[in-house]
């Protein structure tokens, strides 16, 4: 009996980790925008939803196994394009405003985007099957573990490594980090801060779109998926430390694992477990586990 529960636990933890991958990708984008631009971006969740719907449309239009791979590139790029327009037309006028105003403004954008999605894709839910390569399941301790989740477990570290390279090893990453600390000074040495912000914002939103495209084969693509992800992403960013990419990784793992354990221990209240974990972390480390850039 114990071996059975142990293997069930292992399987559930693996599923939790692969969910954490999606959460990490989405919340790292949010954290990047929060850390550098200081914008609590509520419509990050809407971009995730748009990414999922776009991935569906592209995958169906292209068809076959190639469809998924095309969608995996096209959807985040499409989302990045949408975010580019929003940033240049609207947000770039508001950088000097107070956080509360920015929060309400991005919420307004989220309301508009939510209805736009309803207009374009309708109120029905969609579902997408994983590419042929990742259909079916492996056998892990006698339990089936979907191949697609294994693929996600590989994607997570890849994105983390890419983000680390981007922020630590490239000029724009260095400039963005400097701008996060003192944007006047960066402007004073002759760098166009406005465009640095635009690039950081686009990269952050690209990650939201990527998260949406990756989650598309795992669950139904529906209206309202923006509401749940954005709260989760915010909590992950908060417990990790605002603006800290590794904090987002740590937070996502905590969130994914507590959720997985919750499903195993008390399915009815599984949804409560990650929130309890978040509150516990914040009680002892009010500004997050890792160092915040704020």
């Amino acid at each position: 009996m114990t071996t059975l529960t142990l293997s069930a636990l292992c399987q559930q933890l693996l599923v939790g980790l692969s969910k954490a991958t999606i959460l990490f990708i989405v919340s790292s984008g949010l954290s990047l925008v929060l850390g550098v631009l200081r914008i609590p971006n509520i419509f990050h969740g809407s971009l995730y939803m748009i990414g999922a719907f776009m991935a569906y449309t592209v995958a169906v239009a292209v068809g076959g196994s190639a469809g998924f791979w095309v969608a995996l590139v096209a959807a985040p790029v499409g989302v990045a394009a949408v975010s580019f327009v929003i940033e240049r037309v609207l947000l770039s006028r508001l950088y000097e405003r107070e956080h509360l105003m920015l929060l309400l403004f991005t919420f307004s954008v989220a309301l508009v985007l939510g209805d736009l999605v309803k207009m374009v894709w309708g109120a029905d839910y969609r579902s997408l099957s994983p590419p042929a390569l990742f259909q079916g399941a492996f056998d892990v301790f006698g339990f089936p573990f979907p191949r697609y989740n294994l693929f996600l477990l590989g994607v997570g570290p890849l994105v983390a490594a890419g983000l680390w390279r981007l922020t630590d090893r490239t000029t724009i990453g260095q400039i963005a980090k400097a701008a996060a600390v003192d944007r006047e000074m960066v402007g004073a040495v002759g760098i166009n801060v406005s465009w640095v912000f635009a690039w950081v914002f686009i990269i952050g939103c690209f990650l939201a779109g990527l998260g949406g495209a990756l989650v598309a084969p795992m669950q139904n693509i529906t209206q309202g998926m923006d509401h749940s992800i954005i709260i989760e992403a915010f909590l992950i960013v908060i417990i990790g430390g605002l603006g800290n990419i590794w904090g987002a990784l740590l937070g996502a793992v905590i969130f994914g694992l507590t959720d997985a354990v919750g499903i195993l221990v008390w399915p009815q209240f599984a949804i409560v477990f990650p929130y309890v974990a978040v509150v516990t972390v914040l009680l002892f480390r009010p500004t997050g586990l890792l160092k915040s850039t704020w």
Binding site: H99, I231, L282, P286
Partner: peptide
């Protein structure tokens, strides 16, 4: 104990916890 944005964020997480309990 927290200031401004952190206060608001912790409140959202606690509130979501209350919501999750009532929802389930």
């Amino acid at each position: 104990r927290l200031s401004k944005l952190y206060f608001g964020m912790l409140q959202i997480s606690l509130g979501s916890l209350v919501w999750a309990i009532i929802f389930r």
